[in-house]
Write a protein that binds this DNA or RNA. Structure first.
Length: 850
RNA sequence: GGGCGAUUAGCUCAGGGGGAGAGCGCUUCCUUGACGCGGAAGAGGUCAGUGGUUCGAAUCCACUAUCGCCCACCA
């Protein structure tokens, strides 16, 4: 064995940067329309420019890069298109918090122009960070095509989409109840509201009668309703009871007074009211509750909006004007108590909406907003999913999206935020409303609002390829091949991309969707900054090496969420080391030319490798990463390293040097998509001239399948293991003598089991009979070992007896023989035969020794 | 209130009608000329519970328990 002079462990820090630079220098990741090749394209889900990448990004990056590199090696014109998202509301919140923390100012203190500039600067910085992290991760994206949702071209696509939808009547302006965030002073969509259980109270509110019909049916001179938000009573415009409610027949049509605002309102009947809830009387506040809004519409009542955009009481709030909604609640309750108008107050656990971005309690609030009418857009998307024109892994998410598409409401897309794409609508001096990219004339004012950030990202798969221009890129790469994403944005983003793709491009945005796991903290809970249990992927990449982290993540990745495990990363690291040492072995192994003189071992490893190629590739194609990792790991470690390398040391053929190198290089190629840096370096070390990234992926070759060699090596390895086992149990040292079992590779067996062939002179000596599946290995023993051998035989016999009985029992069952598949029955018969012979052999041996 | 998923070795998790798997941890042995981030040999599990379907169930079905996650306008 030659001295290789190669360090004993692989040093990722010394390798990764150099190799990434080399890939870039070679233009390895660049893709352009090429009529001679099939396209394969993934549009990277653009990370938000709000900070740094997290573990989810690391996982999804690993997944996408693995698929992309595999496709590239398989000969596709492969484009991974990178980009980042301006993240309107999220970034605005981040910058606002920073402003408050560092300067004690709000966005209103600095003004819109200055604030937007600060957002821009922040975004620039975050973007640089993120792109650096993608490089660290080894992402093989085409950097020339980097897109940003605030790029001029992208904004133009956004405006085009808006104007088109507006002209088609699918975008409209309307005054409705929206989810209002008083902190952001903006409307948000239904999907941006998180409902959380909170311990609240249910307050009994009494409305004194102001007509002359005397007390109510319960003898009181007031009607009582319950509310969790007593301050909203200032906006009450009616009370409502159920028309079927016998108790309140006489209440309908009577008039009561809303305290404080001293407004007289009427009691109506409406089916919506649940008589069993509270008193069965419902207060109607159309400006602050979506149900009330509808009931108010039915009753033709004008809403009274009592809140300002910042959550304080408006001028309609009488004496409470200017107070916060929280203070108003306390004050209203107190004043009611003083006036004897407060009924029961009960503890009440209920769900309250919070702003997804800032956590503020959402106020249902009547305001004028831009909406997209969803019904017409959703229908084609639903059809496409129903007919499985998009494959979704796992399929349950396809059904979930269908369900969502069947029940969705119109989408509020205007935001009263500052950071984002301005709505391309202009208001003229004469009340004109014009949707246009540019000002339609003098004295026109552009709508001050910006678009929901998901409106722009919904165009991602085609806007990144040049849309609305009919570019060559768009024609060649659209629809993209696959979208890989976390499930938390299936509705926010994925479903909308499908709708938009079908609407604007007339085709699906991607052929397949991979819904990946969520990476949880080590304790199985969600990672969150506030809990302080986040793991920074960059730290991991630095400590363990990118390839180890990628392998660990893919090994854990399935359709289930998983708790991040350092063990898996350590496993990846150990795997890299194992490969590195195999590299050193291959490098130091004697060279040999091509030879046809293949041994059974050579043929076996080629056959085994070939089968691995087929299965591994199929698993990756179906996004079954965890199983693919298990398979390639076990081939590399348990077949190639544990057996073939050991055989190559002791029983090589003239072809072995070539086979060893061929299989090892093939393994590096299989692993390259997953562990790009280390495999690239190893290939270089063993003398490959061309970078792996530019080489082709191993293809399955039926000619390499070799059942005979598989069978032979299977028997040989069992025989070797049986002897090793025997040695460990009996603690015999040194070389053994034994009879060579039939149908095995004699040289391999003798060398690895360290068994010298017995001679005819040994025929009469004491032997150990070692069962090894369907063969028996016989070892010559010294006379003094006879006693121990008797014990060992008894144990073996009782074990084999159980096997025989089990098989006999099964085969004696007529129903089993009749109903079980032929294969199973035959298998059972074979087991019975093998074990019967074994039992006979062992029993005979035992008798001889007794 | 609906829906989806999970419950498998001490730990973290794969698997998915025909003798229970991996990594880590544990035990014994091995400084063999790729590798102690290693090698060899082991120990360890009525696959949450109860019923059912089946010749056969950890696997399919129903229910129960526990834990997650989505969705929903009951004040």
């Amino acid at each position: 064995m030659r001295e290789t002079g190669i360090p004993k462990t692989y040093d990722h820090r010394a390798v990764e940067g150099r190799i990434y630079a080399e890939w870039e220098r070679r233009g390895a990741f660049e893709a352009d329309p090429n009529p001679e090749k099939e396209p394969y394209c993934i549009a990277l889900p653009p990370p938000n420019v709000t900070g740094a990448l997290h573990m989810g990004h690391a996982l999804n990056g690993s997944i996408q890069d693995t698929l992309i590199r595999r496709a590239r090696m398989k000969g596709y014109e492969t484009l991974w298109l990178p980009g980042v998202d301006h993240a309107s509301i999220a970034l605005q919140n981040v910058v606002e918090r920073k402003l408050l923390r560092e300067e004690g100012k709000t966005r209103f203190d600095v003004g819109r122009e200055e604030f937007v500039e600060r957002c821009r600067v922040f975004a620039e910085k975050a973007r640089a960070t993120i792109l650096g992290q993608l490089r660290k991760l080894g992402a093989s994206v085409d950097w020339r095509r980097l897109r940003y949702t605030m790029d001029e071209g992208y904004v133009d696509a956004v405006n085009t989409a808006f104007i088109k939808l507006y002209e088609e009547g699918l975008i409209y302006r309307g005054s409705r109840i929206t989810n209002w965030c008083p902190h952001d002073r903006s409307a948000i969509s239904d999907l941006e509201v998180n409902y959380e259980e909170v311990d609240g109270r249910l307050y009994g509110l009494r409305y004194p009668f102001v007509d002359d019909k005397g007390p109510g049916p319960d003898g009181n001179n007031f009607a009582q309703a319950f509310s969790t938000r007593p301050e909203t009573m200032l906006g009450d415009v009616a009370l409502v009871v159920n028309p079927e409610d016998e108790r309140y027949k006489d209440l309908v049509g009577r008039r009561v007074l809303v305290p404080f605002v001293e407004r007289e309102i009427e009691i109506f009947a409406d089916d919506y009211v649940d008589p069993s809830f509270g008193t069965g009387v419902l207060k109607i506040t159309p400006a602050h509750d979506p149900n009330d809004f509808e009931i108010g519409n039915r009753l033709n009542l004008k809403p009274v909006n009592v809140l300002n955009p910042d959550g304080t009481m408006s001028s309609s709030g009488a004496q409470f004007e200017g107070m916060s909604r929280e203070d108003t609640r306390k004050a209203v309750v107190e004043r009611l108590r003083e006036r004897g108008l407060l009924g029961e107050v009960k503890d009440y656990r209920h769900r309250v909406g919070h702003c997804d971005r800032c956590g503020t309690v959402i106020e249902p609030w009547l305001s004028e907003q831009w909406w997209i009418s969803m019904r017409k857009l959703a229908e084609p998307a639903r059809e496409i999913l129903k007919e499985r024109s998009i494959t979704v892994y796992p399929d349950s998410w396809r059904r979930e999206m269908i369900r969502w598409l069947e029940n969705l409401h119109d989408w509020n897309i205007s935001r009263q935020l500052w950071w984002g794409q301005r709505i391309p609508v202009w208001y003229g001096p004469g009340g004109e409303v014009v949707a246009s990219k540019k000002s339609p004339g003098e004295n026109f004012e552009q709508d001050p609002d910006v678009l929901d950030t998901w409106f722009s990202s919904g165009l991602w798969p085609f806007a990144t390829l040049g849309w609305p221009e009919e570019t060559e890129d768009l024609r060649y790469f659209y629809p993209t091949s696959l979208l890989s994403t976390a499930r938390e944005i299936m509705y926010l983003w994925v479903a909308r991309m499908i709708m938009n793709g079908l609407h604007f491009q007339g085709d699906v945005p991607f052929e397949r969707v991979n819904v990946h796991s969520i990476v949880l903290a080590e304790d199985g809970t969600k990672m969150s900054k506030s809990k302080g249990n986040t793991i920074n992927p960059l730290d991991l990449l630095d400590e363990y090496g990118t390839d180890a982290v990628r392998f660990g993540l893919l090994y854990q990745s399935s359709t289930q969420d998983f708790a991040y495990s350092y063990e898996r990363t350590e496993m990846g690291q150990a795997f890299v080391t194992k490969l590195w040492n195999a590299t050193r072995f291959v490098l130091g192994y004697p060279e040999g030319g091509e030879s046809d003189d293949l041994s059974a071992s050579d043929r076996w490893i080629l056959s085994e490798f070939n089968r691995t190629v087929r299965e591994y590739d199929a698993l990756l194609a179906e996004c079954v990463f965890s199983e693919a990792m298990r398979l390639i790991y076990s081939f590399t470690w348990n077949q190639f390293a544990d057996w073939f390398i050991e055989i190559a040391k002791v029983a090589p053929s003239s072809a072995t040097p070539h086979v060893l190198r061929q299989v090892f290089l093939g393994t590096l190629k299989l692993l390259h998509p997953v562990m790009p840096f280390a495999t690239e370096e190893m290939a270089r070390v063993i003398g490959e001239d061309e970078m792996l990234a530019l080489q082709s992926f191993p293809a399955y070759d039926p000619a390499l399948e070799d059942k005979e060699a598989d069978h032979l090596l299977d028997r040989t390895r069992r025989a070797v293991s049986a002897v090793r086992s025997f040695r460990a149990e009996t603690k015999v040292e040194g070389e053994l003598e034994g009879f060579v079992p039939p149908g095995i590779e004699e040289g391999v067996y003798a060398a690895l089991a360290r068994v010298r062939p017995a001679t005819p002179a040994d025929d009469g000596k004491v032997r150990a009979s070692l069962p090894a599946g369907d063969l028996v290995v016989e070892i010559v023993l010294s006379e003094e070992m006879r006693r121990g051998e008797i014990e060992r035989l008894r144990k073996e016999i009782s074990r084999v007896e159980v096997e025989v009985k089990r098989a006999e029992g099964k085969l004696a069952n007529e129903k089993f023989v009749q109903n079980a598949p032929e294969k199973i029955v035959v298998g059972e018969r074979e087991k019975l035969d093998v074990n019967s012979v074994m039992l006979e052999t062992l029993s005979r041996r035992l008798e001889e020794y007794l």
